[in-house]
Simulated scan of single mutants.
Amino acid sequence: MTMEAWRVFAVFLRLGLTSFGGPIAHLGYFREAFVTRLRWLRDDEYAELVAICQFLPGPASSQVGMAIGLRRAGLSGALAAWVGFTLPSALVMIGLALGVLHGGAGIPPGVVHGMKLVAVAVVAHAVWGMARGFCRTLPAALLTLACAVLLLAWPMAWMQWLVIAAGALVGLGWRSAVSAGEGPGFNVAVPRRPGAFALAAFALLFGLPLLGFASGSTGDVFSAFYRAGALVFGGGHVVMPLLDTAVVAPGWLSQDDFLAGYGAVQAVPGPLFTFAGYLGAAMSAGPGGWAGGVLALLAVFLPSLLLVLGVLPFWRHVRRWPRMRAALAGVNAAVVGLLLAALVDPVARSALLGVGDVLLVMAALVAMQALRVPAWGVVLAFVFGGWWFGG
């Protein structure tokens, strides 16, 4: 790597160690670092980059980081940004899976239940925050409710992709497109040919299931995590229902262990997609252990890298399309519906066992929403309480 790529790695490693609070908070940390402190971007460039990454499937904060690294130091800079931002939480999550699932000790039942209750609170908080931003009009709110009802009535994997596509089509019909801004916008020095190759690779890898991998094989696991990462609109929280379908439904991991890991990932800094590392290390399919965790991480993040490399060289032209933001508005409303359905089933259905659980979740929501307690603080409180009272 070049010296500039190492500098990118160092900056993002520090962010990966300190950026608590989820994807929206990460974008705030990034702006302070790259616009205010380091001055690698202007404010208008950063705002446009965030808009691009919000439109693309995948973890928006990680994609923003990859794009900044790409602009500073080329492909090695994009990889350095991803590794630096992802490494701390990835090590923690894979280590957790190995220690409590493969080490034989197991997670105490009270801690498991505490983590599951945290998952309810975190998902509910995410639904509320996203609904306030994406469901400001009656048509958007109705689209969100319709998507949630469809997903609860027909909880199949293909229905998740269908409602996202339908959201884009409905958004186009709203005739609410916003014209692209004037000025040069965010640009990177990446030729179009490598960009086209990256987009072709993104599409080809999405067709991996056609190769007929054996159920639970390494190829099957890679394909499942790749497809989840390729169609996650809305950020890290939305990957939860997609991975639940990919991992729990075929019996690779129990629902309790899945939700325990999802609760634990709220307590670590960095991208929520490192939850995939926990799943890959803990589940019975694929190589398991460290190899399984690394495999799942590479698979779930690879679509994001390919899309950043593929879209940015063409963005100067795409940004002139007058209907792009209208389609995005529909996708965002559908994503809120996807999260709302996941909140009802399986998150709340498997975690709320009585009135006391409901009261605890409400207390966690008040702590996060009104008192501004960070999610990791709520997680630690519930884990300690579960260990103390029910462990």
Score class of each variant (00 low, 15 high):
residue 293 G to N: 07
residue 255 Q to V: 08
residue 146 A to Q: 06
residue 113 H to R: 11
residue 88 P to A: 03
residue 209 P to Q: 08
residue 195 G to E: 10
residue 5 A to S: 14
residue 315 W to D: 02
residue 124 A to L: 13
residue 301 F to K: 06
residue 227 R to C: 05
residue 127 V to L: 03
residue 339 L to Y: 14
residue 334 A to D: 03
residue 304 S to E: 07
residue 153 A to P: 06
residue 136 R to Q: 15
residue 270 G to S: 05
residue 199 L to W: 08
residue 353 L to F: 02
residue 201 A to K: 00
residue 150 L to P: 02
residue 200 A to D: 06
residue 310 G to Q: 04
residue 321 W to Q: 09
residue 326 A to D: 15
residue 298 L to I: 13
residue 46 Y to F: 12
residue 258 F to P: 10
residue 18 T to L: 15
residue 364 A to P: 05
residue 21 G to V: 07
residue 248 V to K: 10
residue 22 G to N: 04
residue 316 R to S: 11
residue 221 V to K: 03
residue 40 W to S: 14
residue 17 L to E: 01
residue 61 S to T: 14
residue 52 I to S: 09
residue 44 D to I: 02
residue 192 R to A: 15
residue 360 L to G: 11
residue 99 G to W: 09
residue 377 G to D: 08
residue 132 R to M: 09
residue 248 V to T: 11
residue 295 L to Q: 15
residue 235 G to T: 08
residue 17 L to P: 00
residue 53 C to W: 06
residue 252 W to F: 15
residue 281 A to D: 03
residue 146 A to Y: 03
residue 224 A to R: 15
residue 4 E to Y: 06
residue 108 P to Y: 06
residue 320 R to Y: 08
residue 347 V to I: 12
residue 379 V to M: 15
residue 21 G to Q: 05
residue 142 L to S: 07
residue 151 L to M: 12
residue 269 P to Y: 03
residue 190 V to R: 04
residue 209 P to M: 09
residue 232 V to C: 10
residue 7 R to E: 15
residue 209 P to K: 08
residue 251 G to M: 08
residue 319 R to C: 07
residue 207 G to S: 07
residue 303 P to T: 13
residue 290 W to P: 00
residue 119 A to V: 12
residue 370 A to H: 05
residue 10 A to Y: 05
residue 11 V to K: 00
residue 149 V to D: 00
residue 234 G to F: 14
residue 3 M to S: 12
residue 333 A to T: 01
residue 326 A to R: 09
residue 356 G to N: 10
residue 275 F to V: 00
residue 127 V to S: 07
residue 127 V to N: 07
residue 142 L to A: 14
residue 138 L to V: 15
residue 307 L to E: 04
residue 134 F to P: 03
residue 321 W to Y: 09
residue 118 V to Q: 09
residue 69 G to P: 07
residue 283 M to I: 05
residue 90 A to P: 06
residue 50 V to N: 01
residue 270 G to N: 04
residue 101 L to A: 01
residue 44 D to P: 00
residue 198 A to S: 15
residue 197 F to V: 14
residue 332 N to T: 01
residue 379 V to W: 04
residue 142 L to N: 03
residue 55 F to V: 12
residue 103 G to Y: 02
residue 132 R to I: 02
residue 157 A to E: 07
residue 226 Y to A: 05
residue 100 V to G: 00
residue 379 V to D: 05
residue 164 I to M: 13
residue 169 L to W: 13
residue 251 G to V: 09
residue 371 L to G: 02
residue 87 L to A: 13
residue 200 A to M: 12
residue 8 V to A: 14
residue 358 V to H: 01
residue 182 E to Q: 11
residue 98 L to G: 08
residue 382 F to K: 01
